[in-house]
Structures are given as C-alpha cells and as structure tokens.
Simulated assay, not measured.
Amino acid sequence: MSGYFTEKSSTDTVNARIGDDVSPRLREVMESLVRHLHAFAKDVNLTQEEWEVAIDFLTRTGRMCSEERQEFILLSDVLGFSMLVDAINNRRPAGATENTVLGPFHVGGAPERAMGDTIVQDGKGESCLYEGRVLDLDGNPIEGARIDVWCDNADGFYSVQQPDLQPKWNNRGVFTTAADGLYSFRGIKPVSYPIPDDGPVGKMLAALGRHPFRPAHMHFMITAPGFETIVTHTFVDGDPYLASDAVFGVKESLIAEFKPHGGDTDWHCAFDFVMVQTG
C-alpha cells in the first residue's frame, strides 16, 4: 500500500503512520476515531466552509472554558455522549438502580446530617419529605450507606452558582443508613432549570431547534463498602421536560412520584435505591 494520501485510502494511510511501540489501547482508540471521523466527512460530503465553521466552533468552545465552566463537557452532555459513556461504564442487572450523569454542581465535604434533618438553608421553595430504603439485589437493607444529596433552590440555581446569595451548603447534605437501611430527610421539590446557554453550545442548541432545560431532579450519590457507587437523580413526575432533557439524563426508572403531603410539609417522595455488590 502506498503511503501517500488519497480520498479512497485516507483512513488506512493515516492509521498506518501510528508507531509500532504505542499502547495497544491507544492504537485501538485512535484507529477507530480516524475511521469514524473520515467516514463522517465522506458520508456528508463535508465542504471546506463547513469544516471552517466546525473549527471556529471548537475554538470558541475552548475559549469559553475556565475553572468555573467546562464548555466541552456541556457539549458532550447535549450530544448525549456523556450519558452514553456513563451507561457503558455502569451496566447493571435488572432491578438495580440506574446511573445518570453526575453534573457539574456536586461539592465534596457537604455536612453530615442526622436522619430526618433538613438540607434547606435559605427557607425558599415547596417543602418535601424524601424517604426510602437502600437495599441489595435480594431486598436486604444496607447498613452504613452514605447518601450524598444536592439540588437547586426554588429559583433554579445551585449554591455554588450563587455563592454570595445562597448559604454555602444550601440544599446539600450527607446521611448514613442504620441497620434498617432507611433514609429520610427534608428538602424542597426541585424546579427545572436551563443549562448555561450563553456560549457556543447554547447557540448550537438554538440552531438545532432545541431548548436548554433540564427537568426538575434531586441528585443522589450513594456509597457503601462492598457495593458499586450509585450516581443518579430522582426526577419529578409530570415535569414538562422529562422527555426532552437537554442532556438526556432521564431514565424511566428514575422518575419519582411526588405526592401532596399536608401538614407542615408540602410534598412527599418515596424512592428505594438498590445497590450491586462489587466483585
């Protein structure tokens, strides 16, 4: 085979330049990337002008990145790529709680709270009692499971987005199960909110006729010795964006029922989490 480039032999020519002593996994990934990238350009007959638009888009995406914002991850999210990578790396048996994306607003070190405590620090929003169990696949309760929870406030912003307006640990907390595997805490009924859409990714969404909204959800990260970590959300049933989540994070099994509660609490959400043993 000639080492010179032609349209027909483009993939083979590029991949043939990879050295002999590179990592086998790097070779596998890059050869596949080149095959799919070249096949895409040939499939759509990509024009020079379209290539220049793509380069400009990627350049502007990079310039939008900072310590506080990662526009490339946002791009991955809205293309469904983040969810695909998460799904590939978190395949679980039937009955186990499904994963979804972590999102950019988790903060480590949230305060440990007693069961039944509130995570609401700003006094805003419709109150909600969250409770349920953490179980294994056989239905046995898991003791010592740490449940890290966080959500937006009633205005649709996370505490880290408004450090000068919200208390530091607003709508955040960590709870640890006892032998009965039960958890219980008070929060708010989350609200839907838009992902940042003032950059190139937002402009791309608009050009595609897509909205930037995420349906209302409560985040959960659940860890327990001997079990796979669960990173997931519970989504508010009836939210208008469930079937069109901008980052494709909704899975049907994660839609939770929010029932009117009465008394000193507006809503009640019961949801059990099922963990898979490691090894």
Rank of each mutant, 00 (worst) to 15 (best):
Leu79Ser: 07
Ser82Leu: 07
Ser82His: 09
Ser82Glu: 08
Met83Val: 12
Met83Asp: 04
Leu84Trp: 10
Val85Gly: 07
Val85Lys: 05
Asp86Leu: 08
Asp86Gln: 10
Asp86Ser: 08
Ala87Met: 07
Ile88Met: 11
Ile88Phe: 10
Ile88Gly: 03
Asn89Ala: 07
Asn89Pro: 02
Asn89Val: 02
Arg91Gln: 12
Arg92Trp: 06
Pro93Tyr: 04
Ala94His: 08
Gly95His: 05
Gly95Tyr: 09
Ala96Gln: 04
Ala96Val: 13
Thr97Met: 03
Glu98Lys: 15
Glu98His: 12
Glu98Tyr: 10
Asn99His: 15
Leu102Pro: 09
Gly103Ser: 10
Gly103Pro: 06
Pro104Gly: 02
Phe105Met: 11
Phe105Ser: 04
His106Asp: 11
His106Phe: 15
His106Lys: 14
Gly108Cys: 10
Ala110Glu: 13
Pro111Ser: 05
Glu112Ala: 14
Glu112Tyr: 12
Arg113Gly: 02
Ala114Gln: 15
Ala114Arg: 15
Met115Ala: 14
Asp117Ser: 11
Asp117Glu: 15
Asp117Ala: 15
Gln121Asn: 08
Gln121His: 06
Asp122Pro: 08
Gly123Tyr: 00
Gly123Thr: 00
Gly123Ala: 02
Glu126His: 08
Glu126Tyr: 06
Cys128Ser: 02
Leu129Pro: 02
Tyr130Lys: 01
Glu131Ala: 10
Glu131Gln: 14
Arg133Asp: 08
Val134Trp: 03
Leu135Val: 07
Leu137Cys: 11
Asp138Ala: 15
Gly139Cys: 14
Asn140Trp: 12
Asn140Tyr: 13
Asn140Lys: 14
Pro141Cys: 10
Pro141Val: 04
Ile142Pro: 02
Ile142Ser: 00
Glu143Pro: 11
Glu143Lys: 12
Glu143Ser: 11
Ala145Gly: 09
Arg146His: 12
Arg146Ile: 11
Arg146Gly: 05
Val149His: 01
Trp150Pro: 03
Trp150Glu: 04
Trp150Leu: 11
Cys151Leu: 14
Cys151Thr: 15
Asp152Glu: 13
Asp152Ala: 15
Asn153Tyr: 01
Ala154Trp: 00
Ala154His: 06
Asp155Cys: 01
Asp155Trp: 01
Gly156His: 00
Phe157Trp: 14
Ser159Cys: 12
Val160Cys: 13
Gln162Tyr: 09
